[in-house]
Structures are given as C-alpha cells and as structure tokens.
Amino acid sequence: MPQTITVPFPVQVKPKFKISQPQEKKQLRVQLETVDLHVYYGETHAVKGVDLPLYQNTVTAFIGPSGCGKSTFLRCLNRMNDTIPGARVEGRIMVEGIDINQPVINTSHLRRHIGMVFQRPNPFSKSIYENIAFAPRLYGASKKDLDRIVEESLKKVALWDEVKDRLHKTALALSGGQQQRLCIARAIAMNPRIILLDEPTSALDPISTGKVEELVQELKKDFTIAIVSHNMQQAARISDYTAYFYMGNLVEFGETAQLFTNPKKKETEDYLTGRFG
C-alpha cells in the first residue's frame, strides 16, 4: 500500500501577514502547500527545502534572479518535472489533504486540476477550436459540451470576439498575445483549481502583456494562480503574495504590499532595490 499522508481538511490557517486590501477575507483557505520541497537535477540541487502555501483565489508571484529555482519550483506543483529525465523531487506537496508528490498519484488527473501556461505561447498546430477542445474531448466531453466549453473559455480570456469568426482556422496565425491568451483558455477549459503561469508575458509586447495582466486579475476570482515573473513591477502590480527565491532557497514570502515596501530580509531588499540580480 502506498503511504498517504493526510492532514486535516480543509486546512484553515490564519494569514501570517496582515492583508491590506479591504476586500480580502479575513481567513484564507490554503489551496496548496509545499513542505520541505527539494528538487535535484542529477547532481544539481535546484530547490532547497521550500515551504510555501498558495492561498485560494489569490495570485502568488515568484520572483528572483534567473536560475534561482522559481520556475523549477513552479514545475513541481503539477509534476511537470516528471517529464524531465534525471529530475528528482523530494518533499510533500499537499493539495486538499493529499500529498500529490507520490508515485501513486495519477498525474494525468492532477494536471487537469492544476493547469499550466508556459513562457512562449505554444498553441498546437491545430485550429483555434481544436486547441481548446483537444483535451476535454479526450476526457469524454460531447460535441455540445465542447462547443460550450470553447465559447466560455474564449470569453473568459476575452478572445471570443476576436476569433469567433475563424474558430476553425489554424491557431498559429494568431498574434503572440492572442496565442498566449488562447493557451490560458486552453488551460481553463479543463476547469482547474490552480493555474501555474511560467513567465507568461516574457515573449510578449507591452500591450499584450497588459492584456494578460488584466486577465490574471480577472481569473483569480475563479482560480488560484501562481505566476513566475522576471519583472518585479509586474509582480507588484498583479500579485497578492510574493515569494522571493535565491539560489534555490525561498528567502522571503509575504503579502506583496508588505514585501515590496518593507521586506524583512536584507537580501530581499537588496534585490528589490536593484543592488544585485
């Protein structure tokens, strides 16, 4: 029998940091929590014992200099590191009471609940419709459901009006920003609980970036979002919580407003003020 570690569910935690925004609830549910998470690529120790919660319906940004382990950490959360030969993930990733970092976990189901959007827009070389309908169809959605899923997903990412007349044309003809929003639509079509965004705007122009940022704000009403960002301003603009990574360690985690204005750690302050990194 595989060992399952169970924790009381749902985990109710008091926020460790004062939430400044008035619309925030006093008590936040933890959607996902990592416990002492380590990642090794062969000999390299890429993530060194990270404990980090993602709160439901919030945006958490991961920042830090490149190579600090933030993307690697993000890729653990839906077991995408499984697809990299030689990668080893140790520690617990608790989602609604179960540790998803165990071999017995059905990664296929898991990734439907924890969606992911990548750095470079990567639509399939299929039609716009097929890009979104592809995965739901494999899980048995009917034609009628598919039509509705495609429309709803595209509306949620504000792409519907732009593409509704050419749903069956190839997705590769869309602009970079449109492609990235399509990729987000593709992820939310599975109705995940969590969406992981890995530097989703780094390949986009400023206008498209703005649209994606707006979208992220919109989406947090329905989903829990974790976003890796190269851009500190972006992290400050769109996130509720921020985690600062350096050399594989989680240096500081806290409410965005507090972390950016009044960091507890010297290293964080140095990074934010541009003294290095």
Binding site: I98, N106, P136, Y139, G140, A189
Partner: peptide, 20 residues
C-alpha cells in the same frame, strides 16, 4: 463545465480522483 466534461468523476472528491 469541466465537471460535466468529466462525466462520472465529478461526484468523486479530488483525493479519490487523484488516487484512482
């Protein structure tokens, strides 16, 4: 929407689904 797409599995809890 996806719950419908997933058919029967929507009645199961997340943990049941993931451990299946």
């Amino acid at each position: 929407q996806a719950a419908k797409a997933q058919g029967s599995s929507c009645k199961e809890s997340l943990s049941e689904q993931l451990m299946k």
